[in-house]
Computed example of a mutant assay.
Amino acid sequence: MVDEWSGFAALLANLIEKYAVVLNLDALPDLVIEEAVSEKDDADKNIHENDIEPVKAA
Rank of each mutant, 00 (worst) to 15 (best):
M1G: 15
V2G: 14
V2M: 15
V2W: 14
V2L: 15
D3K: 12
D3Y: 12
E4N: 11
W5S: 15
W5F: 15
S6A: 10
S6I: 05
S6T: 10
G7F: 05
G7D: 11
F8T: 09
F8C: 07
A9R: 13
A10I: 03
L11H: 07
L11S: 07
L11I: 05
L11N: 08
L12R: 06
L12A: 09
L12S: 06
A13K: 12
A13H: 12
A13Q: 14
N14C: 03
L15Q: 09
I16V: 08
I16N: 09
I16F: 07
E17F: 09
E17N: 13
E17C: 06
E17S: 14
K18W: 09
K18I: 10
Y19A: 04
Y19F: 14
Y19M: 04
Y19E: 11
A20C: 06
A20T: 08
V21M: 06
V21K: 12
V21G: 10
V21W: 02
V21I: 08
V21Y: 06
N24K: 15
N24C: 04
N24W: 02
L25M: 10
L25G: 10
L25V: 11
L25E: 07
D26V: 10
D26N: 15
D26E: 15
D26R: 15
D26Y: 11
A27S: 15
A27D: 13
A27Y: 04
A27V: 05
A27I: 03
L28H: 03
L28W: 05
L28N: 04
P29R: 02
P29L: 03
P29M: 02
P29D: 03
L31S: 08
V32P: 00
V32I: 13
V32A: 08
I33K: 11
I33H: 08
I33D: 11
E34M: 13
E34P: 14
E35H: 05
E35I: 02
A36T: 02
A36E: 08
A36P: 03
V37P: 01
V37K: 02
E39F: 02
E39Q: 04
K40M: 04
K40C: 05
K40L: 08
K40N: 04
K40D: 05
K40P: 00
D41R: 02
D41W: 01
D41Q: 06
D41T: 06
D41M: 06
D41I: 06
D42I: 03
D42A: 08
A43T: 00
A43G: 00
A43M: 02
D44N: 05
K45G: 00
K45C: 00
N46M: 01
N46I: 02
N46L: 04
I47A: 10
I47Q: 03
I47H: 02
H48W: 03
H48I: 00
H48A: 04
H48Q: 03
E49C: 01
N50S: 08
N50D: 12
N50W: 07
D51W: 01
D51I: 00
I52W: 00
E53L: 11
E53R: 11
E53D: 13
E53T: 10
E53Q: 12
P54R: 02
P54E: 07
P54Y: 00
V55M: 07
V55I: 12
V55C: 04
K56C: 02
K56M: 09
K56W: 03
K56G: 03
A57E: 13
A57I: 06
A57V: 07
A58S: 11
A58D: 13
A58E: 12
